[in-house]
Design a protein around this nucleic acid. Structure first.
Lengths: 214, 214
DNA sequence: TAATGTGAAAACCTTCACAGCT
DNA sequence: AGCTGTGAAGGTTTTCACATTA
């Protein structure tokens, strides 16, 4: 199999497959066809098979895919078979909600440090085992804990500055919660979480739906 | 101009344009070219022009686009020139962070009701002017406040049930924060906010970057 | 001159359809 | 018999390149 550059959309769908497979495994299902998986995920069986084919041949013709096996293979491809050390920058209301969100750790994303520029926050506890550090400690903390990913929850106005500092400290991935589109060098992976943007594109479709209302 | 069905990707980008234009307007800039806008948003000028051309002819050849004008036009196309009444379902830690997030109201998304199924939460205050309602009040609250969009922040296991109730109560749009892919009828617009999914696709690229590490 | 708006070309992504394997 | 893996077809999105206009 000649390895073609994997389309980004395909990579974005892999975690969905892993999640569905995890559920199937929890339900004790051992084998699944692209058809069944497609029904569950609302996608065509062909797309699932094509997506998987970018990475290898995981199925058995006439049978389908072994759930556990495929789950593990995809997990490995995505790098979910290891822990990812992360830090949180910004411990305001949003940052605190993030650190208390119980969904990260079980998936291997461990928040090992929390930082903030607000001096009144420094040395206060946050989450159930962290102490807020001053921003000056950023580089040191990243090196000390071998942190690869930063979760950024600072005000929009400070976001680019914080991200520049993270990049200087050699961070590899950034999950940004501020409603801005920060600039990062090509070798840093950036993802934005922006509920307002989601709502603002949603309303385009709602507008038509509500046409003729009072 | 024959109106072609607007690609969804284009609709997803419009809010980005509106946001960039708002910033430009705040900076006192009156005219912008697709080139300048493209530099700011990291996209090609051609894409911006093509996107805009789905909706009309907003620019002046040789000059560019009038910032205020384009901003208003796009705002109108997206339905951002009105208020959108929303409710929050689920007032746990995440729900509380959402209700206190100061980014929704200024963009016209007003949370007018908060509901939860946890009986110990009912009638307690949340945010700075809401009282938690029991789920039984859902339909009544939606009608009373003319709520169009629901923000759902309940545990994964309850999400589909809650969303089914919302659909029955004739909700038009749903912003879901649970790490599941709920089913909704075609006439309901669903958006998911899922930071773990973002991280899990990010790691695909980080894995390669870190190859050869200890 | 400078930048838009847009057909046409190129690139990209999804779906089809079927050979081939179990 | 049933389902995968995959070239090829079909569809969609992006980019090109230039006629047009202020």
């Amino acid at each position: 199999m000649i390895t073609v550059q994997v389309p980004e959309v395909v990579v974005l769908r892999l975690p969905l497959y892993v999640r569905a497979l995890t559920q199937l495994a929890d339900d004790g299902i051992e084998v699944v066809s692209s058809q069944q998986l497609g029904r569950r995920l609302q996608m065509t069986p062909a797309q699932i098979r094509k997506d998987l084919s970018y990475f290898g041949r995981f199925g058995k013709q006439g049978r389908g895919y072994k759930v556990e096996f495929l789950m593990r293979e995809l997990g490995q491809i995505l790098g979910l078979d290891r822990r990812w050390n992360t830090c949180l920058v910004g411990v305001g209301r949003l940052g605190r909600a993030i650190i208390n969100y119980p969904g990260f750790a079980p998936e291997g994303f461990n928040i090992l440090a929390a930082l903030d520029s607000d001096l009144t926050q420094i040395n206060t506890p946050v989450g159930d085992h962290l102490i807020v550090q001053p921003m000056g400690n950023l580089g040191a903390e990243i090196r000390r804990h071998e942190i690869v990913i930063a979760i950024v929850a600072v005000p929009a106005a400070q976001t680019q500055t914080v991200i520049d500092e993270l990049v200087k400290s050699d961070i590899k991935g950034i999950l940004n919660y501020a409603p801005v589109a920060p600039q990062v060098p090509m070798n840093v992976v950036l993802r934005n979480i922006d509920p307002v943007l989601s709502l603002q594109s949603m309303t385009y479709y709602l507008r038509d739906m509500l046409e003729g209302e009072s």
